[in-house]
Design a protein around this nucleic acid. Structure first.
Length: 389
RNA sequence: CGGGACGUAGCGCAGCCCGGUAGCGCACCUGAAUGGGGUUCAGGGGGUCGCGGGUUCGAAUCCCGCCGUCCCGACCA
C-alpha cells in the first residue's frame, strides 16, 4: 500500500481526510458489497480492546452474555407498532432458502429487541425471575442509503444490552447506569469528550419510552452519536407478553431497557485524536503501544541493534501496566526499508511511542524516545527506560 | 431517494474532444550501491480499458442501455 503521499489536511477537507486516513492506516477497507466494510487487523485490534474493556464493565454491573439468532421472523417486527415503523424501511429480508421460497420471510436483525423479549417471555413467570440482565455481542444490518467507513455501514458490529425489570424505576435506574458506563468508557479509554442527555421524541429509539445518548464532540465541531441507552417502558413486554406474577399475586408486565455501542466508536476515536500526520491511538486501545525501530548500516550493526531491540521488548513486555495488562511492544526489524520510512509508517498508524536504537545509542547505552502525539524526541538512558515509559 | 463527480495494472491517474490495437507515477520482483526522518541506479513482471449492444475495415476513444463506486443533502448506532 502506498503511504508515500501526504494526507489531505483536516482544514482542507475533513471528510476526505477521514476516509484517506482510515484506508491508509489500514484500519478498514471497502468491501465488494456496497456499504459494507472489511475491518483490518489494526482496526479490529482496537475494537477487540474496546470489547474487552466494556465487557468487563458490563460484568461488573451484573450482566451476563448470551447470543440470539441473526434471523427474526418478519411477524415479530410488526408486533410493536412504532418499532416496525422505524425499522422496516431499513431491514434486509430473506425470502428464499435452500432454493425454495420461505413460508415466512426472515428479517436480518437490525436490532434484537423482538427476538430477545419473545424469549424472555418464555423464561419469566415470577418476580423472582427478575431482573434479567443480558448482553450480546453481535453484528446487525441496516440498509443505509449513504454509508461511511465505521461511522455508518450497512453491517456493523456492536453490543446490545437487554434487561427486564419488575418496576419502572428500576428500569430507569438501569438505563441511566449504562449510559454512565458508556460515558466512563468513552472518557477513560477513548479519551473522547462526551455530552450526555435525553433525545427528543422525534429522535428517540423506535419503540422506546425515553432514549438517552452519549454525544461525542469531534474536531470538526460536530457531534457524533456514540452510544444510546433506552428505557423501553412496557412497550415490548406488552407486545410479546413478557409478564410475571408479583409478590402480591397479580399479573404485571415487565419493564425493559436496551443499550448499545458499536464499531462507530472506532470512527469517533479517529476523528477525536487524528491529526494531519495520521492516527493517534489512545494507549489503552492500541494493539501496539511501543514500536522499536533498530537502525543499522552494516550486518554487524544490524545483528547488534536488532538483538538489543528484542531484549528491550522482552524486558519491558513483562512490565505490568495494570493487574492483567502488560506493555505491548513491536520490533520493526524489516530489512530494506529505511528508518525514516518506518517512522512515517508507524506515525500514520498512530502508535503512541517509538524507540529508536542505533549504533550510537548502543555505544552510549541510551536510546531515542519519540512521542506520537507531540512528536517530541528525548534521549533516554537504557537504565531509565522502564520508569520513562 | 434528489444533486454532482467518476469507472483504464494492486493504488493514483493520463489517453477520449480529433477512432489505428494502451501509457505514466507509486507499489511489486531481481541485482548493485545506500542506510539516525519518506534511498539511488539499472533491469523486469503485471491490464478481457466496469458490463452489454450498436456504428465502423478498425472502438479505451463515437452512440444507446445497464451496473457500480465516491462526494454533498434528507434519514440513522
Amino acid at each position: 500500500m502506498a503511504d508515500d503521499k501526504k494526507l489531505t489536511t483536516r482544514a482542507d477537507d475533513f471528510s476526505a481526510w477521514y476516509n484517506e486516513l482510515v484506508l491508509r492506516a489500514e484500519l478498514a477497507d471497502y468491501s465488494p458489497v456496497r456499504g459494507c466494510m472489511v475491518i483490518r487487523p489494526l482496526g479490529y485490534g482496537v475494537w477487540e480492546r474496546m470489547q474487552r474493556a466494556l465487557d468487563d464493565m458490563f460484568k461488573a454491573t451484573g450482566h451476563v452474555n448470551a447470543y440470539f439468532p441473526l434471523f427474526i421472523p418478519e411477524s415479530f417486527m410488526s408486533k410493536e407498532a412504532e418499532h416496525v415503523e422505524g425499522f422496516a424501511p431499513e431491514c434486509a429480508v430473506v425470502t428464499h432458502g435452500g432454493g425454495k421460497q420461505l413460508e415466512e420471510r426472515l428479517v436480518v436483525r437490525p436490532t434484537s429487541e423482538t427476538i430477545i423479549y419473545s424469549m424472555f417471555a418464555k423464561w419469566v413467570q415470577s418476580y423472582r425471575d427478575l431482573p434479567l440482565l443480558y448482553n450480546q455481542w453481535a453484528n446487525v444490518v441496516r440498509w443505509e442509503m449513504r454509508t461511511r467507513l465505521f461511522l455508518r455501514t450497512m453491517e456493523f458490529l456492536w453490543q446490545e444490552g437487554h434487561t427486564a425489570h419488575a418496576t419502572h424505576d428500576e428500569a430507569e435506574e438501569e438505563t441511566r447506569r449504562m449510559l454512565g458506563v458508556y460515558r466512563t468508557f468513552m472518557e477513560e479509554y477513548i479519551a473522547m469528550p462526551v455530552i450526555t442527555g435525553q433525545k427528543t421524541d422525534a429522535e428517540k429509539f423506535a419503540g422506546a419510552l425515553r432514549t438517552y445518548s452519549c454525544e461525542a464532540m469531534m474536531q470538526d465541531n460536530k457531534a457524533l452519536q456514540a452510544g444510546t441507552s433506552h428505557n423501553l417502558g412496557q412497550n415490548f413486554a406488552k407486545a410479546f407478553d413478557l409478564s410475571f406474577q408479583t409478590e402480591t399475586g397479580e399479573q404485571a408486565f415487565a419493564w425493559n431497557t436496551s443499550w448499545g455501542v458499536s464499531t462507530r466508536m472506532v470512527g469517533g476515536m479517529v476523528m477525536t485524536h487524528g491529526d494531519d500526520n495520521g492516527l493517534r491511538l489512545p494507549p489503552r486501545l492500541t494493539p501496539i503501544q511501543v514500536v522499536i525501530v533498530p537502525i543499522w548500516k552494516t550486518d554487524e550493526e544490524r545483528t547488534a541493534t536488532v538483538e538489543k531491540a528484542r531484549a528491550i521488548a522482552e524486558a519491558l513486555g513483562s512490565f505490568k501496566l495494570h493487574e492483567h495488562e502488560r506493555i505491548r511492544l513491536h520490533v520493526d526489524d524489516r530489512v530494506g526499508i529505511k528508518p525514516g520510512a518506518k517512522y512515517y509508517h508507524w506515525e500514520l498508524r498512530g502508535i503512541p511511542l517509538r524507540l529508536e536504537i542505533g549504533p550510537r545509542d548502543l555505544a552510549s547505552n541510551s536510546c531515542m524516545l519519540v512521542r506520537r502525539d507531540t512528536r517530541e524526541k528525548t534521549s533516554v538512558s537504557m537504565d531509565d527506560l522502564a520508569t520513562e515509559l
